[in-house]
Structure formats: C-alpha cells, structure tokens
Design a protein around this nucleic acid. Sequence first.
DNA 1: TTTAGGG
DNA 2: CCCTAAA
Length: 644
Amino acid sequence: MVVKRKLSCGSNGFDFPKIPKAPRSSRRKVSAKRADDDSQICAIDLLASLAGKLLEESESSSTSTYAFEGDNLDHLGGVVKQELEDGYNKPCKFEFFDQGNPASKSTSENTSVTCLPFSSLENDCILEQTPVSDCKTACGLKSLVGEETCVVNEDAGSEQGKATGALKDPSQLHLQSPESVHLNGDVKLPPCTDQLPNDSFEGYRNHSKLVCRDDDENYCKYYKFSDKCKSYRPPFRVGNRRIMQSVMTKYGGRSISKLKCFEDTRTDGRLKALYRKRKLCYGYNPWKRETVHKKRRLSAKGLVVNYDGGLSSESVSNSPEKGESEIGDFSAAKISFLSKDSRVKFSIKSLRIPELVVEVPETATVGLLKRTVKEAVTALLGGGISIGVLVQGKKVRDDNNTLSQTGLSCRENLGNLGFTLEPGLETLPVPLCSETPVVSVPTDSTKLSERSAASPSLDTRIPIPLQDKDPLINLGNSVENNHELVPHPSDISAADEQPSSDSRALVLVSALESEALALFPVNEKPKRTELSQRRTRRPFSVTEVEALVRAVEEVGTGRWRDVKLRSFENASHRTYVDLKDKWKTLVHTASISPQQRRGEPVPQDLLDRVLGAHRFWSQHQMKQNGKHQVATSTTMVVESGSSV
DNA sequence: TTTAGGG
DNA sequence: CCCTAAA
C-alpha cells in the first residue's frame, strides 16, 4: 500500500494536503545552474574575453595609455579647466592627465582631442573620465558636437617617465577646442533624441542593450534598440556616481542573479516583465545593508578616479553623504576654485559620469564592442546633461545671479562649492531636484499594486490624480510611492468592465511603451534613492496580527494562501509571503523576552496564541510526517518484500 | 503559483 | 521585506 500525498491540482483551486510537505530542510536546494544562467555565464565569459582582447590591444597599442582594469584607474586623473571669461559658448578645454601609475605601461604619447563646448549650458564643463583604451574611445565625445568636430592628434613622441609640470607622467590626453574647427562655438548640443547617427546602431540593432547601472547595482535601466526605437533617450540618471567603466570590469564581480536583468523579457506582459526586472534589480534590503555596502565598496574600487596631483592647492571633495544625495550623487568629485583678479577660474577635477554597461551579442566583434561602448558614452553625454551648482550644499537655482551674488567670489567659499550633473530639462520636465515632495504621485496603496516597475521619471510624466486613502502612507515619501502606479490585480480584474480603470492602465502602458521602447530614462528621485527600490514597509497592526493569528489557528501554518484568502483578501499589500513572514516574526517575537521586542507591542495574549498555534501545528505537521515516514517505510518493506 | 526557508 | 529553490 502506498500512501501518496494528494496532489493539489486543478485550475480552480487546490486540495488541502492530507500530508504536509516535507520539511523545508528536506527540500534539497540544488545549486545546479539553470540553463539561462549558463548562457549568461557564457555571455560573461565572452564579454570578458572580448574585454581582455581590448585590454591587450590597448596595452600593446602605441596610442594607448590606459588600461581597462579598474585597479589601474586610481592613477588616472582628469582636469577640466574652464576659463569663465565671457562664460557662454566658450570652448571647454578638457585635459586628461595620466597621473603616472608606476605600474603603468604608459607610452607617453600625447593625444589631443578637440571638442566644442556645451554651448547651451552655462559654465558647463563635462569631463569624461573614461579610461580610454585608445583614442577612438575618447572620441565618444565626437558625436556630441558633430562628426567633424572631433579632431584627434596623436603624437607618441614623449618618453616614459618624463615629467610634465606637476605630472609625473607626461601621458596626457588633451582636449582643446579651437573654434576654427567647427561652427564657431554656437553649436548646440544635440538634443537627447535623434542626435545619434542612426548607422551607428546598425549591426546591433535589435539585439543590443544598454544598461545603465548605479551604485546599487540597479540594473533595471535596460534599453533595447529596436527598429521601433525612434527616440533614443540617454540612459541617464541623476543618481549615478560612477564613471564610465569597462565592460570587463563590470561583468567581473556581477552575480548571476543580477545579470539576469539583462534578459529582455519585455516582449509580453510589459508590466510584469518590468516588475520582474525590478524584483531582480532593485533589491535593497536594510537587513543586508552591510552586505550591500561591502559590495558597493568592492565594486567601487577602481571606479573612482582621483586626481591628487596639484594644479590647484585647494580641492574639495564632495562626498555624496554631504547633501549631494539630495540632488543625486552624480556629482563633481573634486572642484578647485582659483581666484585671480576679478575672474574666477574653475578647475574641476574628476567629474563623474554614470557608469554604463553595454551588452553585445555573442557574435559581436571587438569593433562592435568598441562602438557600443562609444555609443553608450555618446548617448549619455549627448542626452542633455545639465549642470547644477551647489553652494554650501544647496543648489543654486537662479542662473541669472552672478557668481559673487551667489557667494562664489571669495576663496573662502571654496569648500562649499559643488557641481552636479543632471538630466536635461527636455528629458525630465519635472524638476528632479525639487526640495518639495512631488504630490501628484499617487499614494494610494490600497488601490495600487506595489509591484510596479514604474520608474519615477516615468511618474513625472504620468501624474495620476488619485487620492491618498491610506493613512499609513507617508505623503512625503514620493519615491516609494512611485511603485504604486499599477492597479491592484483586483482592480485589473474589475477593470474589464470599468473604463476608468482601464484607461488608467492604458496610460501606464502607453507611457511605458514610449519610454521603455527606447531608453528608459533611469528612475531617479533625489531622495531616498535606495529605499525607493523596496516596497513600502508597513508594520502589521494589532488588528492585522489578530486576524493573522486567527486564520493560522484555523487553517494552520503552511497554508498561507488560505490565510491570505481568509483574512487578508482585501489587503492587497499583504501577500501570502508577507503573512508567512509575519508569522515567522510573530513566533520569534513571542519566544523572546518582552524587553527585546521592538516596534508596536503585540498584546501578550496574541503572542500566546501565536505560540500555541505554532506548537499545535508543528506537532500536527510532525505527526503527519511521522505517518508519512511510516507509510514510506511500509511501502518500502512491501515493495522489497514483493520484489524478493 | 505557492511554500519554505534563508538573507 | 526580498530572493529563490522546489514543488
């Protein structure tokens, strides 16, 4: 006789298991990788090898000074000088200095790239501090100003070790901009759309994605170029603090689960797929904060380019912890402020730009990889970056004030000056750096699913006028509310007959379509960037606990779907996983001393019931397991007996 | 999808 | 609260 567990099946329900599942511990967790993981790994390997080839190439090339290895970045530095003479439409002078890493195989060549300034911006210099493997990469700036604007002069004449000024290593990459080169300085930056040469995407259209990642490894900023992709938006986000990084380094420390974000699953169920990506990519767990930070530190290694040679005796480091996070940590790393006469000379060191991750098909050539990287850089920089100015940690909004009015006329303000890189206004109509919360964002969590991948930047375009009905929601918490955009499943089901709900969904989808088909402007809100990736924390109320306890008493542990349906069917924000988790914590809470408990106190009688139910159902489960064991062994005996 | 369990 | 293996 074989006692079999009755399978729960059927499309419209399930049968309560007569015998509970085996304990979790007996469910062996298999470490075997799945097929897609393998393929991801293959892709990684391929990319790594590609990058490796690039590295070799760059190292052996006479025009190469920089390696892609992150560890080699530390010695790289860059200085942007800008003379603020007439201010506007002045060419920016970009100077890249290799700081002379002793380990560097620098060949001491000079490379000059000339570019025109970001004429549409005021006092703006953007330094691309990409570790360039060759001059072509550096010319990612090229597309910013037009095809012919970028003049590359390479002369590899200098000798290694020869000092140039304060520099130990003469290897330099100069970017100057003689106006004679092109269009005498009133060249506008290309708008964020359509500024890229279309043919530059040829060859990897339809199977190439750009991924913009920030410090929290939020990979969800994935973009696919497809034929439908008419408007190409830069993968830009305020919160990025990284500089450009090589593909190889990028993939190096990436976990598989994160890499899954590269999957393009948007072919169907757009919202769901996006949410999937959110789940995969946006995880931020305060309980894992330490881990996350460790990871961040690790991955940040070699990414931050510091320049500590001194053209200026005064430099200031704006750490993101000091007020920049409000605007986005996408900021100038070091700024020097030199005062000379009535003029002000800024020496901006190491403006950081967001890190980009590029993905190319396995069949990609090295050249394609290079091009892809270049396009990523171009897209980023060409996407309407604007500059914010911080004085004493506060953003200066009035562009019409003079520097001295702003308080920048004296050297003593040096330490209070900062710059930030921000998306251009044409990209993000709603100011990202608003100090006041955006109130147009719906906060009604009871009507909207939290499992939305809607990005805040999307929110800025889709103000959904819903009322906040949930007192638990913090009005000021605009970021977290951004995840509340998708109608709750129950609403969706009801939406079949309800045009209003329907249209609401349509708005979201169409917006997602227009946005996500091209580059999804990466979500960014100035505040609480990290926490925003999680669902809103909603502590269980005593009432909820009571309902949970009652439900568990009735149906037992291990049937959380039943518990959900029984007592939390209308609580859309409580999933059965939530209930299970809450029960777990309740059991724990009940078994510790009251002094160790935190949060809203749960009445002791409830906790007693928790323990009681827990004990009861545990025994119940053990009994069932026991029966199961007996049955199994009996079966085996019978079988073995019969087989003899 | 649901459950179980680890983080 | 998140993630994910396993069922």
